[in-house]
Simulated scan of single mutants.
Amino acid sequence: MKPDVDWFRRKLEEHRLSQSGLGRMLGIDKSTMSLMLAGKRKLSLTAAADMARLLGVTASDVMEHMGVRVDGIKAGGAAAPQMLPFEGWIDDTARVQPESGAGKRKRMVDIGVNVEPGSTAWQWRTPQTKMDILDGWIVVSGARREPDDRMIGRGCVVGTKSGEILLRTIRRGYTPGSHTLLGLGIPESAEVEVEWYAPILLMKPATA
């Protein structure tokens, strides 16, 4: 499979980047970038994760549009499954409850695919609620980021300056420095100040 050059061109335009500008941000020279987009030079998982962060997509998106099949990667395959720290529970209002236990060693979750460094796993705990259908599903979020324009319109785990952690889609607020948070049939919230966000990379059923 050849790289989808048109897809990369669209993503670069969305972020007002040139091919050479993206290469500079990745520490990749112009000729190497050209070879990658021509399918003549392999893209490492590390470079894919960095490129995904800059383009506001997942590492899987980057790899697939580079012509690499990344679905269903298992141990012993081209890339080993990734163990992620389990961070907490998501309730039926999409509020996140960090796993309790100070000093407790974090549990690790095998999500079966490689994602960007710093990613974490969460799990829906919603039995006998309106969100029962999602009970047990795993949510994988990317590394925490400081607020920026790339979070607008994306589903994210969001940390607010008031101390809440929520699973929401972020919209621009009506006053400088504020945002509104939407999601899952929940009415638009009051304006909040976002402390950090972690984009949702994937969601999948829990495996036995």
Results as ranks from 00 to 15, higher is better:
99 E>H: 10
41 R>I: 02
53 R>V: 07
146 E>G: 10
187 P>N: 03
136 G>R: 04
140 V>D: 01
65 H>T: 13
196 W>H: 07
154 R>V: 09
4 D>H: 10
162 S>H: 03
44 S>V: 11
122 W>I: 01
88 G>R: 05
3 P>A: 00
183 G>D: 00
187 P>R: 01
108 M>A: 05
173 G>Q: 12
178 S>V: 08
132 D>S: 15
185 G>W: 02
105 R>D: 04
62 V>H: 04
194 V>S: 06
111 I>E: 00
91 D>Q: 06
92 D>S: 04
202 L>S: 02
15 H>I: 01
100 S>E: 08
114 N>V: 10
151 M>P: 03
163 G>Q: 05
83 M>G: 14
192 V>T: 07
188 E>M: 09
58 T>A: 06
102 A>S: 12
90 I>R: 07
157 V>Q: 08
91 D>M: 02
3 P>F: 12
150 R>I: 03
108 M>F: 06
64 E>N: 10
138 I>F: 01
74 K>F: 13
117 P>Q: 14
133 I>E: 07
163 G>N: 04
25 M>H: 10
193 E>Y: 06
189 S>I: 12
152 I>P: 00
106 K>P: 02
20 S>F: 04
97 Q>N: 08
94 A>N: 05
201 L>R: 04
206 A>C: 12
173 G>P: 07
69 R>E: 08
177 G>S: 04
168 R>P: 15
31 S>V: 12
188 E>L: 09
152 I>N: 00
74 K>Y: 11
115 V>I: 10
20 S>C: 04
156 C>M: 04
125 R>H: 02
149 D>V: 07
189 S>C: 08
12 L>Y: 03
132 D>T: 12
12 L>C: 09
111 I>C: 00
159 G>N: 09
25 M>A: 10
156 C>F: 00
137 W>H: 11
193 E>K: 11
116 E>N: 06
78 A>H: 12
36 M>A: 06
198 A>S: 15
44 S>D: 03
182 L>Y: 09
94 A>L: 13
152 I>R: 11
172 R>A: 08
85 P>K: 01
58 T>Y: 04
179 H>L: 02
166 L>R: 07
113 V>K: 01
108 M>K: 11
184 L>Y: 14
89 W>T: 15
181 L>Y: 01
5 V>R: 06
162 S>P: 05
69 R>Y: 03
112 G>T: 11
32 T>W: 00
7 W>D: 01
72 G>M: 03
190 A>R: 10
207 T>Q: 15
150 R>G: 05
17 L>K: 02
112 G>H: 02
87 E>W: 01
77 G>M: 09
193 E>M: 12
190 A>K: 14
50 D>M: 09
145 R>W: 10
144 R>Y: 03
149 D>E: 15
66 M>Q: 08
142 G>C: 04
187 P>I: 04
53 R>Q: 06
80 A>K: 12
171 R>N: 13
97 Q>H: 13
26 L>R: 03
97 Q>M: 11
164 E>K: 07
126 T>S: 05
128 Q>C: 11
166 L>M: 08
